[in-house]
Design a protein around this nucleic acid. Structure first.
Length: 555
RNA sequence: CGGGAUGUAGCUCAGCCUGGUAGAGCACUACGUUCGGGACGUAGGAGUCGGAGGUUCAAAUCCUCUCAUCCCGACCA
């Protein structure tokens, strides 16, 4: 992960323990810039800032049910009286408790509370530095509404605020439709910063419909073209030792897209369920576990269960003669004259056709979309990109307010359970994501709104040339007085060292002060993203920088 | 949690197989030279060899346990 290496090399962070980092001055300054933009936009959107405790009593989590639902990711601890506490991985419980105590009337709604706070999630395997750390800073906001319509309005307002924030930060991002996961709720969108190194795959339409969704959520459309008529006879062929789709396809000389893959998963009442996808397609676990009869979360069936249901080892499974429930992906149902397992070791079937050789199973959307699939938005083709999730907004509905009895009195004096929205931003992760998107071979190239300093002053050979040191100090004082955040590299180091470090830490504007320049009444300017220097009249430096910095901040 | 690997100077690592004086490069300190793209010379400081126990005359090296870290996987608002 490039961003992590650069953050360490540039001295933005230092590791203390696995997934736990100290933010040093340079990194902290950028972190504060991110926070400031978030704070301004949240305030502008009418949200109220609060600060909730990191340590929370277990009772609230027992009330919501998440004390039992959450696994080892929830860091639990006991105080000296042996009472249970958690270090908050999120704050739905605490905010809902606050809301039910403070909000009594529909006339107080809608309300939106947010905080910028440290969270802790005991990740199984922390990695990529602050991108997936255990301790991290998050902005989390929670809105409360009397009606679903009001929730929708609040959600839309947050969505707009998020777009403003990420644009102000100079990030290339996409809002994408998302799965609500274990947090529950209905509508949900993620904000993904586009980066090849991102952990999430997202499907984006190349057409005018603007469709974008997390890969795990993007639906495939049923094939509209009529299926080809059977032309080959059903035949059993020996395929000794050919267990995988790739092996079988190569062995029989057919493309993987003409084969059928059978995946046996556990049923929700025990037993197994057969899922069929085209050989070259991937099963989508999120979609599969939502099917009636399929266990959630999705679990692959054990070898013994497969043997019991089919009398055959995995590797040669096929849909003919199965007695368990069967679902087939739309694309699998579009096949004709295809190859599949014969439910007999070392044997496959070829020339198989739905209807003629076996009954058609229940159709379903089972697979991940692939590049080139038609966009669910209706006007375009899907392209697969990778992204870093930096924000996620949810319409939670009444999941927590119901469990924790958070209600207000409506106009007729009757209690109504509040509707909730929740809106998260990974603050620390944004810093890493920004670097992931803005770097070159020499180091970080900060977007100006996030740069720890706007200007770096590099005096050359100042130790031996007092007038260089004096000129640099004077310029530093002038720039600082002009409100420009300036870093003065007054180290007694060689020029190459200073240039390399200035580039590594990614300060947008650089001014070199040298004897040569002073003699000519000129100073040298260079933008971090430029490859050549500019020669500036010394007396115009402050004015010019002020204009450049103002332009950078106004984006 | 499953699989794999690594813990020796601030950092990166060699030494371990075959037990016997703890090393290199970078970094650091002092002095001198140098000074527009990661300088050079001389001198110097620096290590409970992750921890505990064991074998042995003798353990960084062999054995046992333990802790930590990293990689792959499962996991993941």
């Amino acid at each position: 992960m490039v961003s992590h290496q650069l953050m360490l090399r540039a001295g933005l962070i230092r590791r203390l323990a696995a997934g736990i980092y100290t933010w040093t001055t340079l990194g902290l300054r950028t972190l504060r810039k991110v926070e400031a933009i978030i704070r301004e936009e949240m305030d502008r959107a009418g949200a109220l800032e609060v600060l909730m405790p990191a340590v929370q009593p277990a009772e609230l989590w027992q009330e919501s049910g998440r004390w039992d639902q959450y696994g080892p990711e929830l860091l639990r601890l006991k105080d000296r009286h042996q009472r249970d506490f958690v270090i908050g991985p999120t704050h739905e419980e605490v905010i809902t408790d606050l809301a039910r105590r403070e909000l009594k009337s529909y006339r107080q709604l809608p309300a939106n509370f947010y905080q910028i706070q440290v969270k802790f999630r005991d990740e199984i395997r922390p990695r990529f530095g602050v991108m997936r750390g255990r301790e991290f800073i998050m902005k989390d906001a929670y809105s409360f509404h009397a009606t679903p319509e009001s929730l929708q309005e609040g959600y839309d307002a947050m969505r707009a605020a998020y777009i403003r924030m990420f644009e102000r930060m100079g990030l290339e991002f996409r809002p994408v439709k998302a799965d609500t996961g274990s947090i529950g709720g209905t509508a949900s969108e993620e904000f993904q910063v586009l980066a090849d190194s991102g952990e999430d795959a997202i499907a984006v339409s190349d057409g005018p419909d603007q469709y974008a969704a997390n890969l795990e959520l993007a639906p495939t459309l049923p094939t509209t073209a009529p299926r080809a008529a059977p032309s080959a006879p059903l035949a059993k062929v020996a395929t000794p030792g050919q267990r995988t789709i790739a092996d079988v396809a190569a062995f029989l000389g057919v493309p993987a897209s003409r084969t059928l893959k059978l995946l046996m998963v556990e049923g929700d009442q025990g037993g197994v369920v057969a899922l069929l996808v085209r050989g070259d397609h991937e099963l989508n676990a999120i979609k599969a576990q939502k099917l009636p009869g399929v266990a959630s979360p999705l679990r692959m069936a054990a070898r013994e269960a497969v043997l019991e249901a089919t009398g055959c080892e995995p590797g040669y499974l096929g849909p003919l003669g199965l007695s368990c429930p069967v679902y087939a992906d739309h694309a699998a149902l579009a096949l004709a004259d295809f190859v599949c397992g014969a439910n007999e070791v070392d044997m496959h079937l070829s020339g198989v056709n739905w209807g003629r050789d076996l009954p058609e199973p229940a159709p379903a959307d089972l697979r991940n979309v692939v590049e080139g699939d038609p966009s669910p938005g209706g006007d375009g083709r899907l392209v697969i990109r990778r992204g870093i999730e930096v924000g996620h907004i949810f319409q939670l509905g009444r999941k927590y307010s119901e469990a924790m009895q958070a209600s207000v009195l409506d106009e007729s004096g009757k209690p109504v359970t509040m509707y909730m929205g929740c809106y998260g931003i990974g603050v620390t992760r944004i810093v890493a994501a920004a670097i992931e998107q803005n770097h070159d071979a020499a180091g970080i190239c900060w977007p100006e709104p996030l740069a720890p300093f706007a200007v770096v002053l590099v005096p050359l050979n100042a130790a031996k040339a007092p007038r260089v040191a004096e000129a640099a100090e004077r310029l530093y004082a002038e720039l600082t007085a002009a409100g420009i955040e300036t870093l003065l590299d007054d180290r007694d180091a060689r020029p190459g060292v200073k240039f390399a470090d200035a580039e590594l830490i990614g300060i947008p504007h650089r001014i070199v002060v040298s004897e040569r320049g002073l003699d000519a009444g000129r100073l040298e300017y260079r933008n971090r993203r430029a490859t050549a220097n500019e020669d500036w009249p010394a007396d115009e430096v402050v004015t010019r920088l002020r204009a450049l910095v103002a332009a950078g901040a106004a984006r």
